[in-house]
Amino acid sequence: MIKKTVANVQQALQGVEDGMTFMLGGFGLCGIPENAIAELVRLGIKDITCISNNAGVDDFGLGLLLQKHQIKKMISSYVGENDEFERQMLSGELEVELTPQGTLAEKCRAAQAGFPAFYTPAGYGTEVAEGKETREFDGKMYVLEPAFKADFSFVKAWKGDEAGNLIFKGTARNFNPCMCGAATITVAEVEELLPAGSLDPNEIHIPGIFVQRIFQGEKYEKRIEQRTVRTRN
């Protein structure tokens, strides 16, 4: 067994520097690496590029990094939940590259899987495809999209073991598995870190080979963005 555990978030983030590109898992506030984000805020590193489907809300998730003006560029598919984000984008302080959600996921997966680029129909004929190579296959037009390149991936899983194997819960899975092994170093934070052998190999979502460092997050707020309920009759 190759051990991937580190003692805490400080050790897990060793080597992060100004100007780096990070992938961060999560959809909205669901399944975000809360502890890694908090540590990035504490370290105060600047000029970072974040690949993340969303940009958090004003006072949680990536919104915390935006507040401190630590982010230079965001690569996302939807950023509608964050006023500070909108303000920085419209004023030109923040560079934003909007990418269709499926393309964003596949650009992560391509990096993980060793593909330099792939063709997708998404965005053909729109401003997303401007300046990109296009090609026809069986009468339909496709856009060539390159794989992402990133220095660190920060992902969040439900359970993990010392070997770096991960299991996700519910829709908190989202982009997290696609980002494992898609950057030079993948840091996984988990709610529950278990000894090797505790997880059934049949139930592993991401094998430890894609993970360099794993730690148990100190706490998880798991904030709900839109609390929708029905009433009992």
């Binding site: 939807y78 419209l90 959600q101 393309t103 998404a122 053909y124 729109t126």
Partner: peptide
């Protein structure tokens, strides 16, 4: 400018 989310993938 909120972004396209999954709409471009869906319609394509």
């Amino acid at each position: 400018v909120k972004g396209m989310g999954g709409a471009m993938d869906l319609v394509a």
